[in-house]
């Protein structure tokens, strides 16, 4: 009973938040709607008994990814309205067909795989975090380490890409210096 109420409430909230995120013309509205949707999604993980995944969802998505977007948006001109794409009918048709096929496959998959067996069944008498640790550090140890290396590579790439010319402050420079820097950058692009 309470599960049903919670499911429908959070389903409605998540769908409306994500709908706002893809339809609004204000970048800041999209960002806040997306952050709210991420938090509402973690409610589904708590309902499903995946407590650790829910906590990770809040910490990583709402805490790290959304904060990263918020800081990244300071570099962009986010106050002007976002222009929408004029629909390329071939792409729209193709992606709609893909989505329709996807829906059919999603509903057919549980019917086809009726006799599915759990490969790594849930350990009885252990909390969700303990179960996750047992599986993650035995069966999925190599992917876990590869993911760690991938995150390190992403961190180095982020520092190298975004950290260029961080020592220059555009607000503290005089107009002549800014114009000179702009000309230099334009030259570099042309070359």
């Amino acid at each position: 009973m309470f599960e049903a109420i919670a499911f429908y409430l959070f389903a409605f909230l998540t769908i409306s938040m994500f709908f706002i995120a893809v339809t609004t013309s204000q970048a800041l509205h999209a960002l806040t709607a997306l952050a709210a949707g991420m938090i509402f999604i973690s409610a589904f993980f708590f309902i499903l008994g995946a407590d650790f995944l829910g906590a990770i969802q809040i910490v990583v998505y709402s805490g790290a990814v959304m904060a990263l977007y918020a800081f990244g948006m300071m570099f962009f001109d986010t106050t002007r309205d976002i222009k929408e794409k004029k629909g390329n009918s071939a792409i729209v048709f193709g992606l709609s067909t893909l989505a329709a096929i996807l829906i059919v496959v999603i509903f057919a998959a549980p019917m086809v795989s009726g006799t599915i067996e759990a490969l790594y069944p849930v350990v009885e008498g252990a909390g969700n975090t303990q179960q996750v640790g047992l599986v993650l550090f035995t069966k999925y140890l190599v992917p876990f380490e590869v993911a760690a290396v991938m995150l390190l590579v992403a961190m180095v790439a982020g520092i190298v890409l975004a950290g260029k010319k961080m020592d220059l402050s555009l607000t503290l420079m005089s107009d002549d210096e800014v114009m000179k820097l702009k000309n230099e950058q334009n030259k570099k692009v042309l070359l």
Binding site: F75, A157, G158
Partner: peptide
């Protein structure tokens, strides 16, 4: 989730 986090870091740097 791990892939999404690294995608955001690299993608925002490129942007």
């Amino acid at each position: 989730i791990a892939i999404a986090a690294s995608e955001v870091a690299v993608g925002l740097g490129l942007l």
